[in-house]
Every structure is written in C-alpha cells, then in structure tokens.
Design a protein around this nucleic acid. Structure first.
Lengths: 213, 213
DNA sequence: CCGCATCCGGGGCGATACTG
DNA sequence: CAGTATCGCCCCGGATGCGG
C-alpha cells in the first residue's frame, strides 16, 4: 500500500497492517498458531491466491511474520507470527470488541464462518462466575474444528483443534451457539433453534448465568 | 469497500473502518472534536477530496460520525464522532501503541506532521512521576497549533489548541521534541538539534526524568 | 496436493479541475 | 467552504496454470 507519509503512530501502523486482508491474516495466525499457506487461505474465503502470497511477503518484510520449513516428515512451509507480530494482539482484540456489536445482529446470508472465530465472542460474553470451583470444559461443535471453552480460576480460555474430554457439549449452528453465549437466547429458545446441549447445565451456568432459564 | 462476508467480529469491524483513510478520519475527529470538512482534510494530507466526501458519507451511514450544522453566526457543516464512533478509541489507541516503534525511528524525509499527533507518543512515553505535587503544564510549540501536556495527580493528559499559561515551554522540530519526550535524546543533545526549553527543568523532570541529564 | 505465478476485467484510489 | 466531476492508474477479484 502506498504510505500515508504521516509522522504519526497510527498512520505508521496502518502503513504496515492497513492493507486489505492483512489484519485478517494476522488474526488467522493468532488463532491457529503456525500454519501453512493453504490453512491461512481456508480462513480467508474469497482472497485471491496471488494476493495472499503478496501479503505474506510484505508481512515477512515488515517483521510481522516468519516463514519456516516444517520438520522433515512433512514437506511444507509454515508461517507464524514473530514476537513483533504477536504484539498486535491488543489492537486486534480491541477491534474485535468494537465489532462484536455486528455479530450480535446475526450473520448475513452469505457470511462464512470458522469455529475458531468464536474466540472473541467467547472472551467478550463469558466469564468464570464461580472461580473457586474446579475447572470445567465446554466443548462446542458447529460442524467444523472442535472448539473448547474452559473456565478455570476465574479465567475463560478458548482452545481450538483439541478433542479432549469435556464436561458438557454444545452442538448447533454458529448463530444459535452465539445467541446462547451472548445471552440473547436462553437455553430453551436456543434449543428451539436447533441447538443441542448435553451435560450438566452447571457448566453453562458457570460461564453464562443468564442462559439456563 | 467490498465486505469480507465473514461472521467474525474483527472482519465486521474492518468492513466498517477497514477502508483506506477511514481510521485516520476517526483519529482526526477524536483528537480535534467536532470540526469542518476543511479541518479534517488538513489532517489528511494527500487525500483526494472526493474520497474524503465519500468516506464521510459511509461513516455517517454506519453511525460512526454525525453531520451537524454549526450555530448561525458561522455557516459551516460540522462533523463529529457519535458515541459509537468514540468507542473506537481503545482500538485506535492500541494500534498507535503498536505503531509507536516506527515513530522512534524518526520521520521519513517526506513525512507530514501535525502537532496534535503528539498525543499518542506523549501518553506512551510520559507519566507523572511526582503525583503528590501540584499540577504542572508543559507547552509545546512545533510551529503549529499549540499543544500542552499536563501532569496532574499521577495522570498525563494532552490538550490541543489552547493558549493557557504553562510552567515551561518546549520549542523545536517534531523529531527533536519526540526525541526528548521518548528519552532517546537528553536535554543537552536535544538542544544541539535546535530544541529550546524555557522554564523550570523540574517540569520535564517530572514527566520524563531521563531527559534532564 | 502445496505454494505460488500469470493473465485479465473491474473498481477503488490519486490528482487536479471545477462549481454552488 | 464543501463538496462534485473527470480521468488514468493501480490494486484487487477470479480463474487458470504449473513446478516441486
């Protein structure tokens, strides 16, 4: 992108990550950790292949990401955030906080979805209301990669891609799941929209007390 | 901008403010408060006039800014952030924090500068090291609009456009001023680069103890 | 299959001129 | 002062191809 040529921190930041797709590439690497070209592209439906390659070059040149060869068994190139790149987390987080208002409106008809994108809403909407109790784990199944939400000692964390056992399982469309997590829907209404909840209701009650009515 | 069509908070936020120039328009309105078309354009050197008009329309449509007619004496249109627009402050702030690394490198040869852009570096580099003492005010003159940095009860705040009396005055180029405030230059080195400091050195010592060596 | 490069059509952007 | 009008260019989207 053409530089703004402004001696201002915000403008300089946008010179580096202000291009179209760029911050979404950083988001993918932040949520998935080191991954391949194809994995990144899967998280950016609609991006032109050459454009992704170009952005990755630019980000590497700017010191935001690093290219690394995967260990011998699999021949693949891995991309991952550098320390400098990981420092974009607060900015991305705040941008997501601001954008959460549009998530609450529900998805547009042609909106794509990846289960790992649940991270922001989860951290935004949920909290551990019973920090003194032992950790619990809520598995979420939206038909894609498994996502788990853990409440432990007052903290809520989201993990992606692990099939570890959980205390309860939530199955349904992204919109129904988010409706429940955000408190827009209670468990009964969410069930009417095809959401299925298995396990102790104490788990969802701990994360989101409004849900179990 | 073409929508990313992703059911993700970050992508939705970028759908609204991810266009080129858009976040810089928000920055200007955040730093200056309500101001006119021409004032905004002054803070965005190089923007095409039609693009600014288009962006303002889009931002108004998205509920980020509001258009308002100035009171009778002056016939002018004023733009200002809505509550929703003001909520972008944390995101912009974090983006600026990330970009401050590029400010420390000094300006590029053709970089533009506006004194009000000092806000981010000031909040980033300075703190009130003697919170128990009475408030002090440091005026900064880079040849443009007056900027003042106030230390009061442990807080550092920046005000723009006011000519109130100050306890000390800093005069010089943006780079020299920032060099001093960031601690990259001490008072002696900064003076060799054309910076002039008038008033008690206690003021700068309170804000930036490393400077007075 | 992975990681791109190439080609082409369309639209966003930059620069300048002009107007109520 | 607050935009609109115009034009050329480059960036982007979409499809295809291709070497490792």
């Amino acid at each position: 992108m053409r530089s703004y040529s402004q001696y201002c921190a915000v403008a300089k930041a946008l010179d580096v990550v202000g291009d179209r797709w760029t911050l979404l590439i950083v988001r993918e690497l932040m949520l998935r950790g080191a991954c391949r070209y194809t994995d990144i592209r899967d998280g950016l439906p609609g991006i032109a292949s050459n454009l992704l390659a170009q952005r990755l070059r630019e980000l590497e040149g700017a010191g935001v990401i690093e290219r690394r060869d995967a260990p011998p068994p699999v021949a693949a190139t891995l991309y991952e955030l550098t320390v400098r790149g990981a420092e974009l987390a607060p900015a991305l987080h705040e941008l997501g906080r601001w954008g959460i208002a549009y998530i609450a409106e529900g998805p547009a008809v042609d909106d794509e979805f990846r289960s790992r994108w649940l991270s922001w809403p989860a951290e935004q909407f949920l909290s551990d209301h019973e920090p003194h109790k032992p950790p619990v784990r809520l598995a979420i199944d939206t038909g894609q990669d498994p996502v788990a939400i853990e409440a432990s000692a007052g903290e809520v964390r989201v993990t992606v891609g692990e099939y570890a056992p959980a205390d309860a399982t939530l199955t349904g469309s992204p919109h129904a799941v988010l409706g429940l997590l955000s408190g827009r829907l209670d468990l009964k209404s969410a069930r009417e929209r095809g959401l299925e909840y298995r396990g102790s209701t104490a788990v969802i009650a701990r994360l989101q007390p409004l849900a179990t009515t």
